[in-house]
Design a protein around this nucleic acid. Structure first.
Lengths: 126, 126
DNA sequence: ACAATACATACCTATATGGGAATATGTCAA
DNA sequence: TTGACATATTCCCATATAGGTATGTATTGT
């Protein structure tokens, strides 16, 4: 098979930069399609198609009013993404601590000879 | 143009479910490629290619040791995603409040006649 | 009814994959 | 050196877009 379908889930939907722009724009308040076109400068069919994708995964809601269709971001649909990323929070905090600890050790080495077992710093290639 | 390049940024990289699996697996501790292959059950070339993408966007780090290459998740690269999602936090909290408030109003209407201006509930289609 | 407005869809094209198979590269072991 | 082992890369193919253009559809105003 080829690439996974963008319409399948929120992760794929937000992979597109323009869709993220649209989401941010529509988070403040609902807007008709024309406003998005004008404000973000995309072609109208392009906006419609992106909105379609966003709607399919529940990231935006739509309300009809006459010939206008008002879209707004459904922020709750972003929560799962936020929570997924949050599962890594403890790891980056740990990383930051490592960096800090390492820096402190280096500082102390300016004054004392190395008596501690050398900190295992993985020597990265690239 | 066609679809945006997956290798371009972290948002695209995590759009692929298998890459998210790999990230989670490598968050705990570094692992050689073979472990990923065995644990997640993907083909070896597939794992190598996903790791390549993840490395290009900085989501994983690699360390060579003999013929083994140890990969680990660089959790800090996930922070921007977390922060992007977090910018919507106030909105979903607001949404939740709206739901709550609405529920309370409905409850009170069981006892009192409607005296407040009707809450503007956009009547969604679909 | 008719024209204008606001969107959505259909169609076509170029392209970026993701999977699978085969192969190349690099390292260690005997 | 010759293999065995661990990964990476290359090739080929099928497919899901994203963009652009043109067209379809629904609604309003006159």
């Amino acid at each position: 098979m080829a690439r996974a379908a963008t319409t399948s889930d929120a992760f794929n939907a937000i992979a597109e930069p323009r869709r993220r722009q649209i989401l941010s724009y529509l988070a403040l308040r609902e807007r008709p399609v024309g406003d998005i076109v004008e404000e973000l400068g995309f072609d109208q069919p392009s906006v419609s198609k992106h909105l379609r994708v966003l709607r399919n995964v529940g990231l935006v809601r739509m309300r009809c009013q006459g010939r206008h269709k008002f879209y707004r971001t459904n922020a709750e649909a972003i929560r799962p993404l936020h929570e997924w990323a949050a599962t890594f929070e403890r790891y980056w905090q740990r990383q930051l601590q490592s960096v800090k600890r390492l820096a402190e050790e280096r500082m102390s080495q300016l004054n004392a000879a190395e008596v501690l077992p050398s900190p295992k710093i993985p020597k990265e290639k690239v």
